[in-house]
Design a protein around this nucleic acid. Structure first.
Lengths: 206, 206
DNA sequence: TACTGTGAAGTAGTTCACAGCT
DNA sequence: AGCTGTGAACTACTTCACAGTA
């Protein structure tokens, strides 16, 4: 039996489908079509059908997709039927804002540990979390089984801290530092950098 | 004379090249090659050469690229040789963290106006900015010539506020709200949503 | 020698268009 | 009648490989 590898670009669209479908679900919409979903998020209907067909046959000819069923399927595909623990590393303004953001918990992500290297911050509480010494990451992260980290440290130390995280067993990093991380190929990194996004947009402005 | 349109995917990589090159510049590196730059950011050398060739011939055979010159060229291509004014809309935790972030100013982006609709927040100062009533956006944004907005309002009002911004003359929106905005085709939108990124990564974890 | 810039080749991604089902 | 799922066609993107040049 051959297990076809799904292109990463397809995987990257699934969360957007899920977001739109959850919104429909909250609105009480029971059924949708690839057409309607596509219009909601600006993607062609054929694209959506093709993407979903990589994982199974979720629709019904003539009627489309059950919103609730497709939400379930996407959650299952994306492994969202469990709670994911997160480590938050770097408790500056951004780290603090993320600690307080309710969206993580609402989507099954639980910030379980927060770290900083500043003695002034260590021991302080933010949103129910006690900030811990980043020198303890190697011990605490494996003991809590945390696999995902959000990195909100200054660019100057981001590479070093990222390596420590990998050493502590982290497999995926959401990188807020404005620098490219160089890590082993089996570590998944996603970057969030507003400057990069703004510079992309200015190209089109005058 | 035909002006070839550069693919958006190429434009999107230019800021990453620029980021790495500015880093090299600060490190005192005078010259680099497509090979070296590619290794720094995990992109093939051929890709970088092809991308740059869309805009001109910036390298020298045998020696590679002058870091300072290529930084200048990329800044020029991306229209970064001027200050861009930004409107910050929504002064919750995230809006506050962005208001205090030094990175914008360091890269030629100046947050010139901050808005919220909460009477408790209006008139307060954050990082040298007075928070203004969002009902004033239509008047203030054109008067300051602001073309770019960062949207950090709750998802429930994001679409409505985005439409008001477009109405006020905004041409590009950096959208932090966890929702797809539906706006005219000539408005550039970039989304920053940590949940979407995390859900992308969980696919690969177990 | 060491690199760029670039056609050509190769690979990946998207859209078309329609059979088939409800 | 209305929609999905999917091969086939098409388009876009990336890599190869090498002529050209400092």
């Amino acid at each position: 039996m051959i297990t076809r590898t799904v292109p990463d670009i397809v995987v990257g669209r699934l969360p957007r489908y899920l977001q739109a479908l959850e919104h429909m679900y909250r609105e009480g919409i029971k059924t949708t079509s690839s057409q309607e979903l596509g219009e909601a998020i600006g993607i062609s209907a054929a694209q959506i059908r093709k993407d979903l067909s990589q994982f199974g046959e979720f629709g019904k000819q003539g009627t489309g997709y059950s919103v609730a069923f497709l939400v379930e399927q996407l959650q299952s595909i994306l492994k969202l039927t469990r709670i994911w623990d997160l480590a938050l590393v770097g408790m500056g303004d951004l780290g603090n804002a993320l600690a307080r953001y309710q969206g993580f918990a609402e989507h099954g992500f639980r910030i379980t540990a927060a770290f900083d290297n500043d003695p002034e911050k260590i021991g302080k509480e933010v949103a129910g979390l006690i900030i811990q010494d980043s020198r303890e990451m190697k011990r605490i992260i494996p003991s809590l089984g945390i696999k995902i980290a959000m990195l909100t440290v200054p660019a100057s130390v981001a590479q070093m801290v990222a390596e420590e995280l990998v050493d502590a067993g982290i497999r995926a990093i959401l990188n807020y530092a404005p620098i490219s991380l160089n890590l082993p190929d089996d570590i998944h990194v996603e970057n969030i950098d507003p400057i990069i996004k703004l510079q992309h947009m200015t190209y089109y402005l005058d």
